[in-house]
Computed example of a mutant assay.
Amino acid sequence: MGGPLTTEAHPTPAEPTTPLRIGVVGAGVISRAYLGHLDDHGRAAGLALTAVADLDPERAAKAAAGRRGVRALTPDELYAAEDVDLVLNLTVPAVHADVALAAIAAGKHVYNEKPLAPDRESGAAVLAAARAAGVRVGCAPDTVLGRGVQTARAAVAAGHIGQPVAATAFFTSPGHEAWHSDPEFYYRPGGGPLLDMGPYYLSALVHLLGPITAVTGAASRATERRTIGSGPRAGHSFPVEVDTHVTGVLSHTSGALTTLLMSFDTHAAHLPRIEVHGTGGSLSVPDPNNFEGPVALHPAGAGEWRELPPSAGYAVSGRGVGLADMARALRTGTAHRASGELGLHVLEAMEALLESAATGRRVEVNADCPVPPAVD
């Protein structure tokens, strides 16, 4: 398998004495989850929020309000701030690379929300700039470091399903415009169900089955316009610029084949999130968009599924676990798990799937991606 499914644990660091100072760029919807986790667990995890920036100064001020020692800044002020070691990039996907490159140019580490960048070329440029500057790049999702996916990974590594041969991965939704007050970016280049939700599923599949070597895909869109269903702009319609139903087959370095479906055109379904099937049984994997969830095993010849107790993964979970893991890695000089390299590999695989859908051809993927160490 290209990139071993290692279970080597990183050393447990001592209680951090100097926290990694975090500056957030982008104070939109997803920032609430990150800021809440930093409020609850940041100090214990060696993280300290020091600044928040947004193109909307009022949004930045609102996010900073009530948080001791946290300032509201412009993005340029945040990049230059001496009390920011790492920029947490929570902007819209179209500018992920621009913000990351600006932060790297200022000598900061970067942790990007998914996807790493709007396209593989700009994603590769981010990693190249970081290597040249001697800083690190992290990338969401970190949900796959929780007890759900990591317990499933431990079961696969222990041989509970024998040799993996196949997997299925399904995300089905009618789209985000029903609940999101500003959903247009989900339907522009860099969005769509694959680039929005695919990183959770493909990252989990790499943890479970190894990197992706090739893909075959098909795609469609059900409608050319969508209508916002909530908030002050409810009733406003906007154009759909990307395919909203993507399906295909992924080939992994392990030899396993994954059948993937990502859709914003599905109103209801009884499909599992992820299942992995092997020569000795089958495994039900929980929603990779969550940190927790039941993992069930059905050994070959068994009469029923049985739930496995949590056996791996970070027990304290929430958006920001990947940041804490990165802080630990910086202190110990080891690899961080929610890496830019994995983010780029997932981005390349997703773009290859869309290319295959457009051309009708099987597309090869660069599988030279280290599988992150398991979380014991």
Rank of each mutant, 00 (worst) to 15 (best):
G2V: 12
E8M: 10
P13T: 06
E15Q: 13
T18C: 00
L20T: 08
A27Y: 10
G28M: 09
G28N: 05
R32F: 01
Y34E: 08
G36F: 02
A48K: 12
A53L: 12
L55Y: 09
D56V: 14
P57A: 08
A61R: 15
A61V: 10
K62Q: 10
A63Y: 04
A65D: 08
A72Q: 03
L73Q: 03
L73E: 05
T74H: 02
L86K: 00
L88V: 12
L90W: 03
V92N: 09
V99R: 09
A103I: 11
G107N: 02
N112A: 08
E113K: 02
E121Y: 12
R136Y: 00
G138D: 02
C139S: 11
V144S: 08
Q150D: 05
A152D: 00
A155E: 07
A158L: 05
T172M: 00
S173H: 14
H180R: 07
S181R: 13
E184M: 15
G191C: 14
G198M: 01
Y201G: 04
G210V: 03
A214M: 01
A218Q: 12
R226V: 10
R233P: 01
G235I: 09
P239H: 03
L250N: 05
S254T: 12
F264Y: 15
S282P: 00
D287P: 14
P288S: 01
V295M: 07
G303M: 10
E304R: 13
Y314N: 02
A324G: 05
R331T: 04
T332I: 01
T332E: 10
A335L: 14
S339T: 14
L342P: 12
L354E: 02
L354T: 04
R362S: 12
